[in-house]
Amino acid sequence: MNFPFSLSDAAWPLLVALVFVLAGLVKGVVGLGLPTIAMALLALLMTPAQAAALLIVPSLVTNVWQIRPWSALGPLLRRLAPMQVGVFVGTLAGAWALGAPAGAWATVCLGVALIGYAVWGLTGARLTVRAASEPWLGPVIGAMTGLVTAATGVFVIPAVPYLQALGLQRDALIQAMGISFTVSTVALAAGLYFNAQYSSTSLGASALLLLPALAGMALGQSLRHRLSPLLFRKVFLGSLIVLGLHMVIKEMLAP
């Protein structure tokens, strides 16, 4: 992997592992954010495509875990199926049209996506989707999410605002996000493989990074009742804005 600064062979794996500990901690405290914070920080060390490849296994395992309980999965999965088809198709179409997320354009797109997600989260804006609109709006939102995923490796926009607009109860909303993030992760892996950016070496490295991600989640869950989730979320979102601005400005000022 090519880094923008000099790291010893021993230092960079430790730094990457610490990124996943932090990303897992955020997910443990606020219930989401592992892929987002991991992509934001790893993009400072490598291309978005390389970062996305390392993200696959930790994201997949933690989001499959989030889908439980299995007994409540059927009705929600049927309701969200049109959106998830859109996610998968949109991601693969984006991977075919855009290629792997690498280079200045991918970094800028990632920065913009982080800023957009953080600003939306800080405003506390809430939308409402009528049940009659779900059959056509779900696939549209899914396809848009897929295109953003293919371009940036981040799959929260516009999926999360849409899912929150469905009026689901808290447990059902967490499960719905787990479903959407799982489908996005599988589609992202397929897109990376299609663009020859997902090798057995990437898979092995990603599997190893599951351990620090789970350790971070356990730490975050233990801290959840000691910290103010609202304050922690604001700090988390504010940090994403700073990282997003850094990415955009750095690429715009590059010679």
Rank of each mutant, 00 (worst) to 15 (best):
R226P: 00
A81Q: 10
L253Q: 02
G86T: 03
P101A: 09
I249P: 03
F155Q: 14
V57G: 07
R170G: 02
P135I: 00
G111V: 07
W136V: 11
T149I: 05
S6V: 12
S180F: 00
V154T: 13
L110K: 05
G116F: 03
L54V: 04
G24W: 06
T201Q: 13
F20Q: 04
A52R: 09
I241V: 15
A172T: 08
G153W: 15
V29T: 00
L41W: 11
V186I: 13
G138L: 04
A125I: 13
A97C: 10
P58G: 01
S59R: 04
L45F: 12
A150K: 15
L92Q: 14
A132V: 14
A215I: 05
G191E: 04
T91G: 05
L55T: 08
W96H: 14
G111N: 02
S222R: 14
P75L: 02
P13D: 12
G220S: 03
M144E: 05
L45N: 02
L127H: 08
T123G: 06
A132I: 11
L209I: 00
P139H: 04
A150R: 15
G238Q: 08
A196R: 15
F88A: 13
V19P: 07
G167K: 10
I179M: 14
G178L: 05
P255H: 10
N195A: 11
E134G: 05
L209Y: 03
S59V: 05
V30L: 05
T149Q: 08
S222H: 09
A11P: 08
M46I: 06
Q221D: 03
P82N: 10
A165F: 08
W70I: 12
V64A: 11
V160D: 07
L80S: 04
T107G: 13
Q175N: 03
